[in-house]
Amino acid sequence: EGAGKTTLEAFAASLAVLEQVGKFDEDGMLSRDTTWIAFSKNVTAELVEKGPTLHQAAQPTVAMVLSLELFLNDGDRPKYARAMAFVALVMLWGSMRAGDIQCMRPESMRLTIEGFSCKLWKTKTTGPDRRVNMVQVFISRKAGFSGTDWLQNGMRLWSEIDVRRDFLVLQAAEDWETCTDRGVDASTVALYLRKIFKELCTPRWHEGQWKQNADRLLLPGECALHFAGHSARNFLASVGAAIGGYVEADALDALQAFAEQRGEVGA
């Protein structure tokens, strides 16, 4: 009564450690008992079912994605702010949340003529029987709305940061032109993204190309606070479903199945 959905999972992990430290025979370990394992999975499933209603994160718009591409390509913006715009775009096109981006290994980032790829050294699926997996991410070179090569420009910015680490985002310097060698957690990544969102300009079509309208912000006031660190995860599936016939059904079904596996079904 009143237990959280991860309570039994945490207890089972602690029990396993205690039994190993106590040098119990494997046959005598409760943590290895099939009846106990089945019971704990069943109770965890019930806790998840009876848990609080989950609310869908705010959905980023196509205009935001377009404006992020223009922001990234704007040489007058601080370098690290532009690098964070790249992070936002990778999250949107890669269906990732802030926690996922901090599991990205920088040395695994590659850009070829086909597109961008990287590896997340761990990412959790949601649900009663939660698993941790290594995930390969791929974003086509054709992904984008502005017609610019934002993937190449973003990769160039991140290649200039020579800090060995097993995560991507570092703490920003005060001027946002550079960064420190200290890492940040997922909640700070989300704050950084909101800062970038607040500075996005409304995109406009002018003389055959997309440009920023410096006189009009895309998200004025406190609108950027509406978006969370996991808002990006459903963008691709939702847009794919909205445009219907322009996306192959098999591709959309595969993306939707992946989202369902992770407990992240799009609107």
Rank of each mutant, 00 (worst) to 15 (best):
G2E: 02
G2D: 04
T6L: 11
L8W: 10
E9I: 13
A10W: 13
A10V: 12
A12G: 02
V17I: 14
E19S: 09
K23S: 04
K23R: 13
F24E: 02
E26G: 04
M29N: 01
D33I: 01
T34H: 04
T34F: 00
T35D: 13
F39P: 00
V48Q: 05
G51C: 03
P52C: 02
P52G: 04
A58G: 09
A58D: 10
P60H: 04
V62W: 14
L68I: 05
L70R: 01
L72A: 03
L72P: 03
N73F: 05
G75R: 01
M84N: 12
V87I: 10
A88C: 12
L89G: 02
L92C: 08
G94P: 06
A98L: 07
A98Q: 08
G99M: 08
D100W: 03
D100L: 02
I101M: 15
C103N: 15
R110D: 00
L120K: 00
L120P: 09
K124P: 00
T125M: 07
T125I: 10
T126H: 09
P128Y: 08
N133M: 10
V135G: 05
A143L: 01
G144T: 03
T148I: 02
D149A: 05
S159E: 12
E160A: 14
V163L: 00
D166E: 11
A172F: 07
E174P: 03
W176T: 00
W176F: 11
G183T: 04
D185C: 11
S187Q: 12
T188E: 14
R194H: 05
I196F: 04
F197K: 01
K198S: 15
H206W: 10
G208Y: 06
Q209G: 05
Q209S: 09
Q209A: 11
W210Y: 11
W210D: 03
Q212E: 15
R216F: 03
R216D: 01
R216T: 13
L217T: 06
L218D: 04
L218H: 06
G221Q: 01
E222Y: 09
E222I: 01
C223I: 07
A224Y: 08
L225E: 14
H226K: 08
F227P: 04
A232Y: 14
N234I: 12
A237I: 12
V239A: 09
I243S: 10
Y246M: 08
A254Q: 08
Q256W: 06
A257R: 12
F258G: 07
A259G: 15
E260K: 15
Q261A: 13
R262F: 14
R262S: 01
G263W: 05
E264N: 09
G266N: 04
A267L: 10
A267R: 14
